[in-house]
C-alpha cells in the first residue's frame, strides 16, 4: 500500500517538475533498465519471506554473465545451451548455500557472504576481462526478433525480450507463492520456523529450495544482464544484492519473514528505477545521491514496518496492554 503511494508520488513529482517525464519512453526505460534487478529481486523476495538473506546475488549474476559470454565466444557453444548451463550453475550454487545453511545451522548472512566472495572469484577465474558477445543468436534472434514494436505516432517503440523475461518471472513467482505448497511453506517458515516444523511442513526442503530459487533467479538476472549489455563482465553488478534487498524492503516485505508479496517487490524495483531516472533528469545531481536516497527510503520503510508491528502487537495484547 505505502509502496504504491510512494511510487505514484515519486512519478507525479517527476511529471510535475520535468516537462518530458510523463512519457512512454520513461516508462519503457524504467522496465528495460531495471529488468535484471527485478529478476534478482524476485529471488531475494523468496529468501527474505522465509526469514533468511542472500548476499551472493550480484556475484552470481556476474558469474552467470561471464560464463555465458565465455562459453559462447571462446568455446563456440550455442547461446541457448550456454544460458541453460549458467542457469543450472546458479540453481546448484543456491542449493549448495541452502544446504550449508540448513544442514549445519550456519547463519545465512555468513554463508551467502562467503558465496559472494566465491562467485566473484569464480567469475574472474572463468575470464578475467569483459567479453562482448557477437553471436547472431543473441544480437538478432533474442534482441531483435523477440522484441515487440509499437507505433506511437511518428516514433517506434521497441520492448526488448528482457522485459518479458522480467514479467514472466514475476508472474511465475506470484503463482508459486500464492498457489503452491512450496509458496505456502515459505510464508509459514518465515512466520515461525518451529511451528511450521510442528505442523509437518517440509522445513528443510523448503529452506534449501528458497536459496536454490534465489540462485536460479540470480543466474536468470545474469542472463538478462548479458542480453541487456551484450557482454559478460566479471566485475559487473557489484553491490546489486543490496539494491535487490532494498527493493524487497521498500516493497513491503518484512525482513523478519512471513509477510510480503512479490508484487510489492516489483513496485519497489520501479521506485528504485524512478529515483535514478529523477536524478538523471535533474542533471546537476551526482549518481551517489541515488545510494543515499535508497538508504533513506529503506530506513523510512523499516520505520513504517516497525510502527505497524508495534500497533499489531498492541492490538493482539488486548485491552490490558501487555506485550
Amino acid at each position: 500500500m505505502a509502496t504504491a503511494v510512494v511510487l505514484v508520488g515519486v512519478f507525479a513529482a517527476g511529471a510535475f517538475r520535468y516537462p518530458h517525464f510523463a512519457s512512454w519512453a520513461v516508462v519503457r526505460n524504467l522496465f528495460v533498465d531495471n529488468a535484471f534487478l527485478g529478476i534478482a529481486a524476485v529471488g531475494a523476495t523468496f529468501v527474505i519471506l522465509s526469514g533468511g538473506i542472500d548476499l551472493s546475488v550480484g556475484s552470481v549474476m556476474a558469474f552467470a554473465a561471464t560464463l555465458i559470454a565465455s562459453l559462447v565466444e571462446r568455446h563456440g557453444m550455442h547461446p541457448a545451451l550456454a544460458m541453460s548451463v549458467a542457469l543450472l550453475a546458479g540453481l546448484g550454487f543456491g542449493a549448495l548455500q541452502g544446504a550449508l545453511i540448513r544442514g549445519f545451522r550456519l547463519p545465512p548472512f555468513l554463508v551467502t557472504l562467503a558465496g559472494l566472495f566465491f562467485a566473484r572469484g569464480a567469475a574472474f577465474a572463468v575470464h578475467p576481462q569483459s567479453i562482448g558477445i557477437r553471436h547472431p543468436f543473441v544480437a538478432q534472434t533474442l534482441n531483435d526478433t523477440l522484441s515487440l514494436r509499437f507505433h506511437l505516432g511518428a516514433k517506434i517503440m521497441t520492448i526488448p525480450c528482457t522485459v518479458f523475461l522480467l514479467l514472466a518471472t514475476f508472474g511465475a513467482a506470484w503463482v508459486a507463492l500464492r498457489h503452491t505448497r512450496f509458496g505456502r511453506s515459505v510464508y509459514a517458515i518465515g512466520d515461525d520456523e518451529h511451528a511450521a516444523g510442528l505442523m509437518g511442513l517440509p522445513v528443510a526442503r523448503t529452506q534449501v529450495g528458497v536459496y536454490a530459487v534465489s540462485g536460479l533467479c540470480s543466474a536468470l538476472a545474469g542472463v538478462a544482464f548479458t542480453l541487456y549489455q551484450q557482454s559478460g563482465d566479471p566485475a559487473a553488478c557489484k553491490g546489486l544484492e543490496l539494491d535487490a534487498i532494498a527493493a524487497v524492503v521498500i516493497g513491503g516485505t518484512l525482513l523478519t519473514g512471513g509477510v510480503g508479496s512479490v508484487l510489492g517487490t516489483l513496485l519497489g524495483v520501479l521506485i528504485l528505477g524512478l529515483i535514478q531516472t529523477l536524478i538523471a533528469f535533474q542533471g546537476d545531481l551526482s549518481s551517489w545521491w541515488t545510494r543515499i536516497a535508497v538508504g533513506a527510503l529503506v530506513l523510512l520503510f523499516l520505520g513504517l514496518h516497525r510502527g505497524v508491528e508495534g500497533l499489531a502487537r498492541r492490538a493482539a495484547a488486548g485491552p490490558d496492554g501487555r506485550g
Binding site: 550449508l100 554463508v111 562467503a114 558465496g115 559472494l116 566472495f117 566465491f118 566473484r120 572469484g121 569464480a122 574472474f124 577465474a125 578475467p128 566479471p234 566485475a235
Partner: peptide, 12 residues
C-alpha cells in the same frame, strides 16, 4: 580478483 574464491572456501 580470483583470490576471494579460495578465501571463501577456507572460511566456510
Amino acid at each position: 580478483d580470483i583470490a576471494p574464491a579460495p578465501k571463501a572456501i577456507a572460511v566456510i
